[in-house]
Design a binder for these strands. Structure first.
Lengths: 143, 143
DNA sequence: TACAATTAGATTGTACACAATCTAATTAAA
DNA sequence: TTTAATTAGATTGTGTACAATCTAATTGTA
């Protein structure tokens, strides 16, 4: 691999890194009215789908471990968005679920993707190309 | 925009977010022998190019502000990789430059991109597609 | 030349990330 | 069944990110 490609490789990783941070920066004001951060929004997306889930299972979906999730979920609990209840069947497990406020947040969040999409303004083809390539990369990483 | 696309949009942002974290996770062991993190590696990439740069100018390249850079550069200084010298011409400015150790690190880092690229294993076409789309997104964000 | 506005970095406070370690609960194996 | 291994989550420590604010230096302007 030539030096030029090596440099590009660095630029690619940097692009990925920089674009992700810019993306969360766009999300920030949109999520502000819900008083949540982007990672918290991801946790809510999971809960709006499944209604109840263990910390471990959520971690597997979001690729985050308990070191990240435990304090974040505690903050979300303090803000009244979720409940954290220890499972009776297995006392090691914490079951995370939505409060009324957390469920209501789903409606308020309805307009967020549209607003974000406006900023993004990608061709539909590029949209799917990007998603395809990123999925491929994620798959490779696991190997 | 349909609900399906909204969902995809979320998946796209999440893919970006997750892929970036996985990427830095791949880098971590490669950077370990240099005893640096991925953001520190980016700072070194800049310095391997320009040899001397202000904190502000580095921040413009990496899209990071002084709140992030100041402590990170101080850590890198403590580790003997860089020097931070206040400019004589303008006392507000800190000029960041490489130490001998920081320059030597460039050679040690030479094999890192190749190693990373092995993990990535993308087609060259996908590689450039990805870079193109990310650049486009970055451009849009600035608007 | 004074003095207001701007600028570069530093600082403070909050929130992820994640490796490493710990604890308590559960499961597997001798 | 007793103990060893495993598992879920919590904790600790380090390192980004970034908004908001602060300070000192510089610049622009009346």
């Amino acid at each position: 691999m030539s030096n030029e490609l090596l440099k590009l490789e660095n630029q690619l990783c940097f692009s990925l890194y920089a674009t992700t941070r810019q993306m969360t920066k766009i999300y920030r004001p949109l999520l502000k009215e819900l008083d949540i951060t982007y990672p918290q929004y991801l946790a809510l997306l999971v809960l709006w789908e499944v209604d109840k889930i263990s910390v471990k299972a959520m971690g597997e979906r979001l690729f985050l471990d308990s070191g990240t999730l435990t304090p974040m979920l505690k903050r979300m609990e303090e803000h009244g968005l979720i409940k954290r209840v220890r499972s009776a069947a297995d006392e090691r497990v914490i079951e995370v679920s939505l409060t009324k406020k957390g469920k209501e947040a789903e409606e308020k969040a309805g307009s967020i993707p549209i607003n974000f999409y406006k900023h993004l303004n990608l061709e539909e083809e590029e949209f799917f190309q990007l998603k395809t390539i990123l999925s491929k990369m994620m798959g490779r990483f696991g190997e």
